[in-house]
Design a protein around this nucleic acid. Sequence first.
DNA 1: AGGCGCTTGTGAAGACGTGCACAAATCGCG
DNA 2: CGCGATTTGTGCACGTCTTCACAAGCGCCT
Lengths: 256, 256
Amino acid sequence: MSQHRHPGAPGRAGAVPALPDLPEATVARLPEYLRALHNLADAGHETVSSEGLSAAAGVNSAKLRKDLSHLGSYGTRGVGYDVALLIEQIEYVLGLTQRRAVALVGVGNLGHALAGYDGFASRGFRIAALLDADPSRVGEEINGLVVRHVDDLPTVAAEESLAIGVIATPAAAAQQVADQLVAVGVTSILNFAPCVLSVPEGVDVRKVDLAIELQILSFHEHRKASLTALPATGGTALTALPGGFAATDTQEAIGT
Amino acid sequence: MSQHRHPGAPGRAGAVPALPDLPEATVARLPEYLRALHNLADAGHETVSSEGLSAAAGVNSAKLRKDLSHLGSYGTRGVGYDVALLIEQIEYVLGLTQRRAVALVGVGNLGHALAGYDGFASRGFRIAALLDADPSRVGEEINGLVVRHVDDLPTVAAEESLAIGVIATPAAAAQQVADQLVAVGVTSILNFAPCVLSVPEGVDVRKVDLAIELQILSFHEHRKASLTALPATGGTALTALPGGFAATDTQEAIGT
DNA sequence: AGGCGCTTGTGAAGACGTGCACAAATCGCG
DNA sequence: CGCGATTTGTGCACGTCTTCACAAGCGCCT
Ligand SMILES: NC(=O)c1ccc[n+]([C@@H]2O[C@H](COP(=O)([O-])OP(=O)(O)OC[C@H]3O[C@@H](n4cnc5c(N)ncnc54)[C@H](O)[C@@H]3O)[C@@H](O)[C@H]2O)c1
Ligand SMILES: NC(=O)c1ccc[n+]([C@@H]2O[C@H](COP(=O)([O-])OP(=O)(O)OC[C@H]3O[C@@H](n4cnc5c(N)ncnc54)[C@H](O)[C@@H]3O)[C@@H](O)[C@H]2O)c1
């Protein structure tokens, strides 16, 4: 694992932007801000304060300001942020100015739902191909796209510049599919199969695992239950939560 | 820190042995370990070293040991961990010893896929009810369960002790559904709708947002592209940043 | 019994992320 | 034109997470 630290990189002078290297935590929040901004834009707002935007995105306002400052932001003191401009900035940084092509592999139960999901199109992506290994599924048309055989992947990749591969096959097939995706040049993979993927350096994998999310919630349920179950005699005040946990991905008790 | 009592071993059902409060990052990894352990158990392994398990779960071995040490784990130096015992321990801590009832609200495109997903059952959960607001969907049978109207939620909650609510409705309806879930006593929610939910203190919300995942991947694609394409002559000359990023939830380059 | 190799558990150090609090900047208005 | 109200951008301190490195413990083999 090569680790390079690059402190300065202050070259934010140009009108057309250089890519700052953002903290990963910031990158993970930018999409949230973007969604909130789109909502605000639709509602007719032209500017928004960090307070307002952070509330809409469900984060702390100082954190939001720091995040935006990382991308050399364009706020105006005393006023706030220009909604349209900020949308443009964030979309640029996230690389959404080009509509990225997504290949979806595994058109089963989940794959069907994904194929029919309009959130792809509305958030900067385009399903370029549906692929499956099951011959009886090949040829099926979903949402205007015909399912092709996964072995056609090289052909598909030749036709389109695939940016992202989505794996929605059973876990047993996921590694093989990942290898096939990597072989045709895909360097970003979203994996729905509950398994760890091995990929070469330079390839990014993110996973979505429903059961993991549920189990994390289960832990907190268990914990909450074990707190309430404390004997009343001498029980410590449990209304004042001991800490409250805020996880990377957990929102709790967002006030109204 | 190690005057640990056996939480796990024999007869632990009665007195709840005050759960250690684990670092949130650890909690998020326990399900991964659990899955890896089940795979190992199925493959016939009786013990596993931290090295082996961490490889199977895709994490650093020191991290794994520290995680397990937090739950007062019982590894044996020179040998490793007892697979069956560790499974038991983790399942206990995660609160999976009781099969938790899940209510799924919104039986549309995605909801159908979730309803048909066997990963619920195999990982400690049980879909207790399918709910929807659309009268034409009510009554439909999916996987042995009949879709009920979302307004029946109080009745359902009275029949079953609901542990977790899953929201798979459009974003516009999500807040209202969340309120309904909270009203019947649900304190853990998994939200698939792309929006922020407001819930009272003590209620946990986790979200799964496909578009966010894709946009994070897009960022890395963009960044990788801007690194490889180093224009020599003017243009949008970008600062040449060396690579290497590792994210909270991103695995990259797991060697073979 | 004793030594040896292997593996756990953890102290310590450093990287990273968060949130407060406030100076600097900007606008609107008298 | 200056002043007060407002809001950004950020220095700083603190908490959390990660990783290294190694002593302590365990089992096996001789
Ligand atoms: N259904 C859900 O709600 C859900 C939720 C979370 C995670 N998942 C995970 O998503 C994955 C898919 O779930 P599903 O319910 O859609 O399963 P499924 O069995 O309905 O669909 C899997 C599809 O993948 C195809 N496939 C199998 N091997 C393939 C290969 N080598 N190349 C290409 N395609 C191949 C199959 O033909 C099938 O169409 C599983 O790993 C599951 O654990 C599903
Ligand atoms: N389909 C996907 O692959 C996918 C992926 C990621 C996220 N999502 C999100 O998941 C959600 C559902 O997506 P979908 O594609 O299944 O949409 P969908 O329109 O197919 O299904 C939504 C269902 O929710 C029901 N519903 C609406 N209002 C309700 C209410 N107040 N109470 C109960 N039920 C109500 C509708 O009757 C419908 O059956 C959306 O928010 C979507 O953005 C979907």
